[in-house]
Design a protein around this nucleic acid. Sequence first.
DNA 1: GACTTTTCTATCCACGTGGATAGTAATTAT
DNA 2: ATAATTACTATCCACGTGGATAGAAAAGTC
Lengths: 196, 196
Amino acid sequence: MARKRKADHDTAIAAALDLFWSQGYDASTREIEEKTGLTRFTLQTAYGGKEGFFLDTLDAYLDRAEQLHFPDPETCDLAGLADWFESVAAPDRIPLIDQRGCLAFNSIADFDRGNAEINKRVQRYLRMFEERVRAILDQAASNGTLTPTLSPNDASRVLVDLLLGLHVTIKARVDDDVARQHAKSIAALVRSWVHT
Amino acid sequence: MARKRKADHDTAIAAALDLFWSQGYDASTREIEEKTGLTRFTLQTAYGGKEGFFLDTLDAYLDRAEQLHFPDPETCDLAGLADWFESVAAPDRIPLIDQRGCLAFNSIADFDRGNAEINKRVQRYLRMFEERVRAILDQAASNGTLTPTLSPNDASRVLVDLLLGLHVTIKARVDDDVARQHAKSIAALVRSWVHT
DNA sequence: GACTTTTCTATCCACGTGGATAGTAATTAT
DNA sequence: ATAATTACTATCCACGTGGATAGAAAAGTC
């Protein structure tokens, strides 16, 4: 038919992920051009503008979080969940998270709730995480390894808020240690739920 | 000496509080003129521009939070703290919080950590809250009313993250009930710490 | 090689932004 | 009253933004 795009979709999205991740939605279209190799023209014609392109990027991020980052109920029990929270602020991961936070979380801040497309993705993020956590808690409850002082319902909501809160702490941090301490305390909380 | 300002400092700050609260730092200088009665000229000469004015407004917000909103260790025990968390999302308060969140929290999102003046105020907010919570927990620990499964250190960090996380949940909400449920679950957690 | 289709390059645009400035009006000290 | 001081009005400005558009260039089809 016609000429091929200089940069293909996948590498463009990968580069954009990097860019939006560090700068949020405020990254300018000029900078998107530089970093992704796309042109503002292509941005317009192929993705329907900056916002459409951002949505695609956010989708890619969520896919990745689902596959790689979130705790997996298949392999993860209550103690594993505690470790997972600690790993969020682990020395090898914190430099990255430290600077950029979580793209989905940042999007909650960048957009108000008037944007339906963003909303869908924010909800997907929250739902995904809560489901994972709840599955782990339900297993622990039926195992008898969950202390009976707190219902899986309450516990899973608390853990969602704790993940979000940890992200805020990371974003608000001045001292690098703070986030790690908070993650440790969250882990300690989860471990206190392990019924012996 | 000279002419008086049409709008005085206090009412201007009060109006600005309202504006920044609902729109964040993105509120335009034009809108600040409308809502506060100040002129862009006065904004410049008397406050050093938009940012200086915003900082003054944020200070006023923090003062208010400290005096009126935060839980008071003098009158508040562990059970009271649980109630306080629930009250954050209470029916009479949630419509407000729902729409506007917390100005200090929003500022964490609006600015990066490169801004020292904002940082100072964000830190003040976090420190104020953590100190209040820690005082309550320390009292409970020495009372013997705090369950020994979690240290006051860990518990206070967890509660800071929970407050922040609750704010995110409120901001990200689609359904109005969600925030209330989360607040209730947090309250349930705190109550589970009450040693009987 | 001619035609078609799509992307690329290079501008151009309207808009909103925070801020600057010059001239005018109001208020107070003398 | 007059002078001094401050705030107000009304523009003006430079800048960055996302987006639009016209023409050139490249890659297919025939």
